[in-house]
Design a protein around this nucleic acid. Structure first.
Length: 601
RNA sequence: GCCGAAGUGGCUCAGCGGUAGAGCAAUUCACUCGUAAUGAAUAGGUCGUGAGUUCGAUUCUCACCUUCGGCUCCA
């Protein structure tokens, strides 16, 4: 999302785009249209309609976004759903009237006078922020004119199919200190067919929503008595443990040791770490024997204490110390979102202590570890570098050095990345990994954070080869990010159809009738003995019904056993994804299943 | 936290000033069955919580809680 907004704030990029559009839209071939310009024009039609209906409404900003557009308005009382219908009707008329969309420019002074005459305070503010030496461009359609860098389509009639999707609040300039405006979201396409396809895709996205599947597949639940605190159901717990098993395996392989630190620790520790000062609004606190304690929002301070529990030599370094730590953060209530954004979650954390010359190598090692994890699940991801924020602790020189090292390593790795100025943690700059999910959203998961503050605050040291005390460098990182979020992304990524190794229930054995019960039980026992998570369905139901239920539960393999199978020790195999695979000897299936299960892991 | 919307049995939803209804799921019984729903019966709800208006509130009003869509924030 931020990318799109940046695009519309970047007049230079938009100018370049405009030239493209002016040539390509010369023909009436709609598929030649630049969708960015198309959605941007749609937002103008929206604003045009709103101004026609309620002239007193003030216009803020209305850019194209991924798959659509929005426009922010300042109107007393906002808009109701009836208002939305009315707006859509009016938009249809504007489209039908087929206004020509014309660009014109004014010298700065005249532009200011013009916007003032229109009585649009937000537009005036934006105009005053534009570079002084440029002419100001406007777009006009009928009696509607908007300050805008463009580009746009040429006629309103080109916007053949559109739909307003939702109304929400949005702060002016995205700053919560500013006034809350009303934002109307919509989408549009050159043809009705494309709009229908898009709306259908939205419906399909709903079908793989992890909150819906989480309930249907009995993976997790939420309760009013613990907003943002997820409950894992038996199957969800299996999923989490499988992720943990895999995680432990690759971390031991990569030379990590694992620790576990307490969840509740004294205020004194959080004061020492700086969290009491910088992070208090997110921390849960408790009083124990008249003393203040806090539930940990991060694992770092505990890990620092573990490091300090004994003296270290340079020969111990790098020391890679992992911790699957349960942290609690009091996130704003409005930000909670299923298991994607919760208030209690397990970080697959690790702190790496090293000498300065080991830093680049360790960053690369972590990078490759994270990359291998994401690749295992077939995830696409973006890398971002976040630099010093306003509330940063520590010396600027340290920050500059840390940022330059991160940049150097990223450049050396040849990975494309985006820089987010001022988005770092208060204790250090970081490299973030964003996974692109099934519905085109992106979620922050992995992160590598350089921490120059903790070692100082906790006075960490090691004895160098020179016999002198030195301060180690500390890297703080997660790969999954949070197990809960990662699970949610996995659920949506696979639409609940987990690969065999990740499926909580791998095989379900279905008996045709009660006569086959004993044989079915025998099959289940052997499968279980071979480490396959198997369940038995011997209810007095028709086989079609039992298959339907197993299919809806998204169990990878169904074994149907009747008289025929009982007599010759075979199973009729049905795959969740490929349907019936026919009969085979049970021993053959067992070997195949065990092999598939272990090869994926 | 802010803007907007919504909360009715386990799930999906109907009802809407006269103390609740369906389908699925559950339970019981019958059927002993061959690749996505066998039939019948039974049970299950102080309609999110608390106030107010009213002869009477699930229905109207207000507050709070939770959820959903966004903003902001973030793993």
């Amino acid at each position: 999302m931020p990318q799109q907004e940046q695009r519309s704030n970047d007049p230079l990029a938009d100018q370049k785009k405009e030239q493209v559009v002016m040539t390509t839209t010369a023909s009436d071939e709609d598929r030649e249209l630049d969708m960015h310009a198309f959605w941007h024009s749609s937002s103008h039609v929206l604003a045009h309609a709103v101004k026609q209906l309620w002239p007193e409404t003030k216009l803020a900003i209305g850019p194209a976004i991924e798959n659509g557009f929005y426009y922010d308005f300042d109107r007393e009382g906002g808009f109701s759903s009836e208002d939305l219908e009315l707006i859509e009707e009016t938009m249809k008329k504007i489209v039908k009237a087929n206004y020509k969309i014309e660009r014109f420019t004014l010298p700065r002074d005249e532009a200011i006078e013009f916007v003032k005459s229109q009585d649009e305070p937000y537009k005036l503010e934006m105009l005053l922020d534009l570079p002084e030496d440029e002419e100001i461009s406007f777009y006009r359609q009928g009696d509607f004119t908007d300050l805008c860098a463009g580009p746009h389509v040429r006629y309103t009639k080109q916007i053949k199919a559109f739909k307003l999707l939702s109304v929400s609040g949005a702060y002016w300039h995205g700053d919560e200190k500013n006034k809350m405006l009303t934002r109307i979201y919509g989408t549009s396409f050159p043809t009705k067919k494309e709009l229908e396809n898009y709306l259908q895709m939205l419906e399909e996205a709903k079908a793989r929503d992890h909150r819906k599947l989480g309930r249907e597949l009995e993976l997790f639940m939420m309760s009013d008595v613990g907003p943002g605190f997820p409950f894992l159901l038996p199957k969800g717990k299996i999923l989490k443990d499988l992720l943990v098993d895999y995680w432990k395996e690759i971390h031991y392989e990569a030379g990590y040791v694992l620790i576990e630190t307490p969840i509740i620790l004294s205020r004194k520790l959080w004061e020492e770490s700086g969290h009491w000062e910088h992070y208090q609004e997110n921390m849960y606190t408790v009083k124990i024997d008249e003393e203040d304690y806090a539930v940990k929002p991060m694992n770092c301070p505990g890990a620092m204490l573990v490091y300090k529990s004994k003296p270290h030599s340079y020969r111990d370094l790098p020391l890679r110390m992992g911790e699957l730590g349960l942290v609690h953060r009091h996130e704003l209530s409005g930000t909670l979102h299923g298991m994607m954004r919760v208030r209690a979650f397990t970080q697959d954390d690790a702190h790496l202590y090293m000498t300065p010359d080991q830093l680049p190598g360790e960053i690369k090692g972590i990078f490759h570890l994270i990359d291998s994890v994401y690749r295992k699940f077939g995830f696409d991801y973006d890398v971002e570098l976040s630099t010093r924020p306003d509330n940063a602790m520590g010396d600027i020189e340290d920050w500059n050095y840390a940022e330059s090292v991160l940049k150097e390593v990223l450049d050396e790795l040849g990975t494309p990345y985006q820089v987010n100025e001022g988005d770092g943690a208060f204790y250090g700059p970081k490299i973030d990994f964003h996974i692109n999910d099934a519905i085109g959203r992106s979620w922050q998961c992995g992160t590598i954070q350089l921490d120059f503050q903790m070692p100082q605050r906790f006075d960490l040291e090691y004895i160098g080869s020179d016999g002198e005390k030195h301060r180690p460098i500390v890297l703080h990182r997660v790969a999954y990010g949070a197990l809960e979020r990662f699970m949610a992304i996995l659920i949506e990524h696979y639409a609940g159809k987990f690969p065999l190794w990740l499926s909580p229930e791998q095989i379900r054995v279905l008996s045709i009738s009660s006569k086959n019960e004993a044989y079915a039980q025998e099959v289940v026992e052997q499968l279980k003995a071979s480490g396959l998570r198997t369940e038995l369905d011997i209810r007095d139901e028709k086989i079609g019904y039992k298959i339907r239920e197993a299919q809806l539960a998204k169990v990878p393999y169904m074994l149907i056993v009747g008289d025929e199978e009982s007599t010759n020790n075979s199973v009729s195999v049905r795959s969740r994804d490929d349907g019936s695979l026919g009969s085979m000897p049970f021993s053959e299936f067992l070997v195949k299943a065990v092999e598939e299960n272990s090869s994926d892991f």
